[in-house]
């Protein structure tokens, strides 16, 4: 979509200014368009790879949701609690693709207050039951519906066309998600398992970086190296908060530690936002 839009702007701008400049712009515009298409073609392998990755994550998400919702329906509260955060990680990794379905995303992932109370279901609704009310009673229906929605997501995801744009925007978006809702501890406000989502978003962004990295290295080896180093820094901070198989409760982090994570994400996202140079013709 955006590729076409860009050429459109160039054409418009040229026609607007024809009166002022005597240079023939057609060749430039055509050339511009051609190089964009070349770039898109060159990235075809990458988008295919990403598609495979994201669908793989959604498939894992289906499986994990199956076990999770079964535990809820069986009234096995401890098991449900243990499964909640790891299950969500698959969804969070594949967010650029999962979010394409504007109708399903809120059903699966809306937080309290994001949608009218009567419509509120999905993971966070059950989270509230498990942690805030410490019960599964009355939440069976939400588990039932969640499973349906997640299955529907799996079915729909096959129809998604993965574009270079989706990857380029998605990588930074994943980190923006972290900056705006994970860092603040608003995502998992009852379970305080925000660090799982945090890690998954970073991993999702890293996957895109890894896929685009060969192309990026050709364009700007230094930028590639810088992004790699920043990912390492974020992981080394996150690793400090590991606990057993998972991560600490977000409420166990000091203000300083939260700020440190937030600033490390900023330091990573800034160079990562330059990853769009891979669309330029060499």
């Amino acid at each position: 979509m955006k590729l076409i839009k860009l050429s459109g702007i160039l054409l418009l701008s040229s026609s607007l200014l024809f009166g002022c400049a005597n240079t023939d712009t057609t060749s430039t515009t055509e050339k511009e368009k051609a190089t964009k298409n070349v770039a898109a073609d060159a990235l075809k392998g990458v988008t295919d790879e990403y598609r495979k990755y994201a669908i793989g994550e959604i498939e894992e998400f289906v499986k994990a949701t199956e076990v999770f919702t079964t535990a809820v329906k069986n009234g096995d509260i401890d098991k449900a609690k243990a499964l909640y955060a790891p299950a969500r990680m698959h969804y969070e990794r594949a967010e650029p693709i999962a979010e394409v379905f504007g109708d399903l995303d809120p059903k699966i992932d809306a937080r309290e207050g994001d949608v009218p109370e009567v419509e509120w279901g999905g993971y966070h609704r059950i989270e509230k039951g498990l942690w805030d009310e410490t019960t599964t009673k009355g939440y069976e229906q939400y588990a039932e519906q969640l499973m349906k929605d997640v299955n529907l997501l799996r079915a729909k995801v096959d129809t998604v066309e993965v574009t270079p744009d989706m990857l380029i925007t998605g990588a930074v978006d994943l980190l923006n998600e972290v900056s705006t809702s994970k860092v603040t501890g608003e995502e998992d406000r009852y379970s305080h398992t925000d660090l799982y989502d945090f890690v998954a978003n970073v991993q999702g962004a890293e996957k895109i970086y890894q896929l685009l990295n060969p192309a990026l290295k050709e364009k700007d080896a230094e930028l590639s190296k810088e992004i790699g180093a920043r990912f390492d820094e974020v992981y080394s901070l996150l690793n400090k908060h590991k606990k057993e198989d998972g991560y600490k409760s977000y409420t166990d982090l000091s203000k300083e530690e939260v700020k440190e994570l937030s600033q490390a994400i900023d330091a990573l996202a800034e160079p990562l936002s330059q990853i769009g140079i891979v669309t330029e013709a060499s």
Binding site: S13, L17, A21, T23, T25, T28, T29
Partner: peptide, 9 residues
Amino acid sequence: LIGASGLGG
């Protein structure tokens, strides 16, 4: 924008 695509004038 134009300048970047070749119209320096």
